[in-house]
Nucleic acid binder design. Structure first.
Length: 278
DNA sequence: AATAGTGGTCGCTAATACGT
DNA sequence: ACGTATTAGCGACCACTATT
């Protein structure tokens, strides 16, 4: 019987055991892939293309050599080939696929380096750090970059603004990435800047956040949304929800980085209508 | 020191494409 | 036309930083 909150806290236990076992099929795949790479007389586009034509399931391993996770691979393919389907690409356009990976990510050089290197403990640890830490580092960095660009626009236009804050709408409040001239009840123009180079439920979260802004806002408050990144291409249902908001006029503007000029023009026009000193 | 908030990664399942 | 192989979509989780 729980007697107190501290009781409750102290009784919480790890759910999953700590385990570093690789799925056996993956394990075997890696083994035979490595063996095959070792046997290639010379690492060339043609050799690698031949390899994945025969073993399409090795493509993710090859991508790892070039420093790409499976997600990053799929994102890159989506842009370049219009599909994230690496398996069929390996079967049907093996050479194009390898050429792409080589030109964009230095695949052949990476494979040569990886199979030549005499791996030390330091190498292994460095790799582990790289793969685990770069996620978090890049997350915050890339997230901020889009926000920073938007902030730059606001500053350049001479607005008073507040970044990453809450604003008060009709009765309730909602989060926003920027508010002019400030958050809270003063907010007259609010907006969101959402950049994603990968997919995930966070894109749905971002849309929900915008939907909330649209729902909460006063009729006189403007709402602008700036989106960019490959992630939206692979999450089109979420992007469509944003588009629907825009089409229904529930948000006043929807832009990508390449339409920042429109954003500037629209936000200036809005500020004139609102008689905000700018 | 805790927490709110950022985007990237992962594994499962539904949908679709493909081969017979 | 059907059954399998492959892809797309989804939601939960991760690693980190900034803020308080």
């Amino acid at each position: 019987m729980l007697q107190s909150f501290d009781d409750l806290l102290s009784q919480l236990r790890p759910i999953a055991p700590h385990s570093r076992v690789l799925d056996t099929s993956l394990e075997e795949g890696v083994e035979s892939f490595a063996e095959a790479i070792r046997k290639i007389p010379e690492v060339t586009i043609d050799q690698l293309a031949e390899l994945i034509r025969k073993h399409p399931n090795w493509v993710p391993f090859l991508a790892l050599c070039a420093g790409l996770t499976l997600e990053q691979l799929k994102n890159a393919l989506q842009i370049h080939f219009g599909t994230a389907g690496w398996y069929r690409l390996a079967q049907r356009q093996a050479r194009e696929l390898i050429t792409f990976l080589d030109q964009e990510y230095g695949l052949t050089a990476a494979v040569v380096a990886d199979r030549t290197r005499v791996w030390t403990l330091a190498h292994v640890l460095k790799e582990r750090l790289l793969w685990s830490r770069q996620r978090g580092v890049r997350s915050t960095a890339s997230g901020r970059s889009l926000e920073d660009i938007v902030e730059g626009v606001l500053r350049h236009l001479g607005f008073q603004y507040e970044m990453r804050t809450m604003f008060r709408g009709r009765t309730e409040t909602a989060p926003c990435d920027f508010a002019i001239p400030a958050g809270g009840s003063q907010a007259q123009i609010v907006g969101a800047a959402k950049g994603f180079d990968s997919t995930g439920s966070k894109l749905s979260d971002a849309v929900r956040e915008v939907e909330r802004m649209a729902q909460v806002r006063r009729p006189t408050q403007y709402v602008y949304v700036i989106v960019d990144g490959v992630g939206w291409r692979r999450r089109q249902s979420d992007l469509k929800r944003l588009w629907a908001l825009f089409e229904r006029g529930e948000i006043d503007g929807l832009y990508t980085m390449s339409h920042l000029d429109d954003f500037k023009a629209d936000i200036e026009a809005a500020s004139r209508r609102l008689s905000i000193i700018s």
